[in-house]
Simulated assay, not measured.
Amino acid sequence: MNTRIELRNNWSKEEVEEVYNLPLLELIYKAATVHREWHNPEEIQISTLLSIKTGGCPEDCSYCGQAARYHTDIKVQALLSTEKVIEHAQKAKESGSSRFCMAAAWREVRNNRDFDRVIDMVKGVNEIGMEVCCTLGMLTEEQAMRLQEAGLYAYNHNLDTSEQYYEEIISTRTFDNRINTINNVRKAGITVCSGGIIGLGETHTDRISMLLTLATMPEHPESVPINALARVEGTPLENNAKVDTWEMIRMIAVARIIMPSSMIRLSAGRIEMTDFEQGWCFMAGANSIFTGERETLLVTPNPGVCEDMQMFTTLGLKPMKKENKTTEMSSCEDK
């Protein structure tokens, strides 16, 4: 008899509040149960993120070291060559990643030679057999169609926080701008990657509201990243307190329960977590991570591939395969 929890898009604020406020161990138990009904708990999707264009962004996102108006240690880097990006993607595949995400510090996509080059990058990464994801800022429906035709699998566009708190964090665009881009991605037939950040100074009500927005979309995002604020020196939020890991676990567990079919990604903040803490996140329903060598062009560092493989061995986890194809892992002993 199949008792799997129903996939719903009609959650009420009161229902999500009730889930969010459960005693923590009870919440984790419920989330772990849902996770096992919908996913293989032994598998973790490994994604690699590459910053293909870094810094110089005109936005004023209070958490972001890539905003041109803040004085940070992040160096501006022009758009990488297509060949360099494909080289990074091939290395990521050999290290066990099944998804390759390309990030550009743009406010919005413009129809120019840089976008033409991104289209070539998408085609190239798709040809080596990886799921291709991009995060490039705001996107029109026509631009989304171009990306889809090039083979883009997913588009990341986080809500960041609740609609009510959004203007406290960003003033150069609106929450509705975020929603419009996600809608344009959906119309083009690209899967959606959208989540948020905790530790911005938001309330528990804001966290509940953000999750409610995601869970009441006509289709849940296929990937939901849960990020802890990376406190970047030189940004307005540099002195915010470190996010407590139990708060991350609570967010992951609630997201798992109300969006059971989605991949819940343990994202920014993982570098500050022990294997023990990450294990609790996986128990609560996280089944996706970003990984990569520390020296790769990541603006927010992640643990290295070898560290993650050792953690997987300890926890009895394994990288998720793409379309049931065997992923050949490079040896950490050679690095």
Rank of each mutant, 00 (worst) to 15 (best):
N2P: 10
N2D: 15
R4A: 14
R4W: 13
I5M: 13
N9L: 06
N10D: 13
N10P: 01
W11C: 07
E14T: 09
Y20W: 12
P23A: 09
L25C: 04
L25A: 09
E26I: 04
L27E: 10
Y29W: 09
K30N: 13
A32V: 07
T33M: 11
V34M: 10
E42K: 15
E42P: 01
E42M: 08
E43R: 08
I44M: 00
T48H: 05
L49P: 07
L49V: 15
L50F: 06
C57E: 12
E59Q: 11
G65R: 09
Q66I: 12
A67Y: 03
V76D: 06
V85W: 08
I86G: 04
E87V: 00
S95P: 02
S98D: 01
F100A: 06
M102A: 09
A105P: 02
A105D: 05
R107P: 00
N111M: 07
N112M: 09
N112G: 14
R113P: 07
R113Y: 11
R113F: 04
D114I: 07
V118H: 11
K123C: 02
V125W: 02
M130P: 04
V132T: 15
T135N: 14
L136N: 12
L136R: 10
G137D: 11
M138T: 03
M138G: 02
T140Y: 11
E142V: 01
A144F: 04
R146L: 13
L147H: 12
L152A: 09
A154S: 15
N156A: 13
E163C: 05
E167V: 00
S171I: 02
F175K: 06
D176E: 10
R178N: 12
N183M: 08
N183S: 12
N183E: 14
K187D: 04
S194A: 10
G196N: 05
I198G: 06
L200R: 04
G201L: 01
G201I: 02
H204Q: 11
D206E: 01
L212G: 03
A215Q: 06
A215F: 11
T216E: 05
E219W: 05
H220M: 09
P221C: 12
E222P: 00
E222H: 06
V224T: 04
V224P: 03
P225S: 07
L229F: 01
V232R: 00
G234T: 12
P236D: 03
K242H: 06
D244F: 05
T245N: 10
M248E: 11
M248R: 06
M248G: 07
A253P: 13
V254Y: 02
A255T: 06
A255R: 09
I257L: 02
I258H: 09
M263I: 02
I264D: 00
R265I: 03
A268F: 00
A268D: 01
R270S: 10
R270Y: 05
T274Q: 05
T274A: 08
Q278K: 12
W280E: 13
M283A: 13
G285S: 09
G285A: 13
A286P: 03
I289S: 11
E295I: 15
L297T: 06
V299N: 15
V299P: 01
P301L: 09
E307Q: 14
D308R: 07
Q310V: 15
M311K: 15
T313K: 14
T314S: 11
L315M: 14
L317I: 05
K322D: 08
K322S: 03
E328K: 08
D334I: 12
